[in-house]
Structure formats: structure tokens, C-alpha cells
């Protein structure tokens, strides 16, 4: 099965291409504009694999949350690739991909994920035994009280010192990002459990939906 995974939802940009017998990854940190990187990275991995987009069996993507523009970039690129060759897609939560990756990397069953959502808020979720819980937009003083057995990951931990106090999580790693290679592994677990990829149009999930105020006039 040939699967392409892409992520541009935050300040990193990554692509992973799974072939029958190998995986080709690209991961770039400190990205200012994923718009100029994402398709060239895709092109690189397809060149290396010597296959074409039409040879894909599925496209996986982080559906958000993240920066609005980054989330839409990811979804828009997936829409185009999927539509061009009628390829099914599967979108998974950015928070879950981070949680899954951190759980594997740090060998922890319990992970608290907080992404800096700006405006004094975080995109929040916690991950226990391979399951994501309570994905939401929270103020730091509203997060779940979890305890010291959790490890905190994501940019929110560096941005808001009080997160540690309110969640009871003492150890955290801010520099922990979504990675397309983890997205592939996580999606494969979903697919093994019977989750089907879809031909519906890929759509973003923002979590922050209150983005405009109606005119009083």
C-alpha cells in the first residue's frame, strides 16, 4: 500500500511516503512559509521512491488544530491530490499525532498535549493508552487536572508557565511537533482497526470557531 502523509499545521512541515517495504520522510523545523515547501517536499519523496501521485492508495493529513493558514494549507493540498486521481483520504487530529509520537518516543502511556493557540489559549488534549481525550480550546487555567504521571508536550507548555500548575504535569517538552511519519503509523493502526479512508472532501478542524464579531449597526 502506498500512502502519502502530510502535515503543515504548525511551525514545522513534514511529508512521509510509505511504500510496501520502506518509508521516506522529510521533516523541516522553523518553517516560515510551508506554502513554498510542501509540494517540493512531496516531489522529492516521489522522485526518491520513483512513483507518481496516481500510484497512491491513500493520502493522510493532519486536519488541525493549528495555525488557521497552516491547517488550510494542509487540507487544500490534500484536496488537490485526492481530487486529481480520485484517491481516498484520512485526516487525523494534529493533537493526536503529537500525542502518539510522544507516547512512542518517550515510552509513556500518558501524554498531555498543549499547542500554543495564541490569544491566551491552548489547543488541549490528553492521550492515555493510545486514545485521545477532550480535544478542546482552553485557557491555561481551564485545562484538565491530570497529575505528575503525565508528560506534557507541545508549544503551549513553553508559552504558558501556569499550565503546569493547573494540570499538575511537571515534566514537559515544548519542542515536540507533529510529524508525518507518526501520522502514517497512527493511521495504519486506525486502518487495522477497520477505519476506512474516505472520498469525501478533506476538511479542516479548527477548534477555534469564534473568529468574527457581528456588526452592532
Amino acid at each position: 500500500m502506498n500512502l502519502l502523509a502530510i502535515d503543515t499545521c504548525t511551525e514545522v512541515c513534514s511529508v512521509s511516503l510509505l511504500l510496501d517495504n520502506k518509508k521516506i520522510d522529510r521533516f523541516v523545523e522553523g518553517v516560515e512559509k510551508s506554502s513554498s515547501l510542501i509540494l517540493p517536499l512531496c516531489d522529492e519523496v516521489f522522485d526518491e521512491a520513483n512513483i507518481l501521485p496516481k500510484d497512491l492508495d491513500g493520502v493522510l493529513y493532519t486536519r488541525g488544530p493549528g495555525s488557521f493558514t497552516g491547517v488550510r494549507m494542509c487540507t487544500a493540498v490534500v484536496q488537490g491530490i485526492s481530487f486529481a486521481h480520485n484517491i481516498p483520504t484520512l485526516g487525523l487530529s494534529t493533537l493526536e499525532v503529537i500525542g502518539y509520537g510522544a507516547s512512542k518516543k518517550y515510552n509513556k502511556d500518558k501524554v498531555a498535549i498543549a499547542l500554543d493557540a495564541r490569544m491566551g489559549e491552548v489547543y488541549w488534549a490528553y492521550y492515555i493508552n493510545n486514545k485521545i481525550h477532550n480535544e478542546s480550546l482552553k485557557k491555561p487555567n481551564e485545562v484538565d487536572s491530570l497529575g505528575a504521571e503525565y508528560i506534557g508536550v507541545g508549544t503551549g507548555w513553553g508559552a504558558y508557565e501556569e499550565l503546569s500548575f493547573h494540570s499538575g504535569v511537571n515534566d514537559f517538552i515544548s519542542e515536540c511537533h507533529p510529524q508525518a511519519t507518526n501520522l502514517i503509523d497512527l493511521a495504519l493502526e486506525y486502518i487495522d482497526r477497520g477505519v476506512k479512508m474516505t472520498f469525501d472532501i478533506a476538511m479542516p478542524v479548527y477548534l477555534r470557531n469564534n473568529v468574527a464579531h457581528k456588526s452592532l449597526k
Binding site: S35, L39, C42, D43, P53, K54, R72, M73, A76, V77, V78, Q79, G80, I81, F83, A84, H85
Partner: peptide, 10 residues
Amino acid sequence: AIAKSISWSL
């Protein structure tokens, strides 16, 4: 983004 990904794919 949609335009470029379609053109790249095709």
C-alpha cells in the same frame, strides 16, 4: 494551494 496540488499531481 488547490490549483498547485492539482497541477503537481497531474
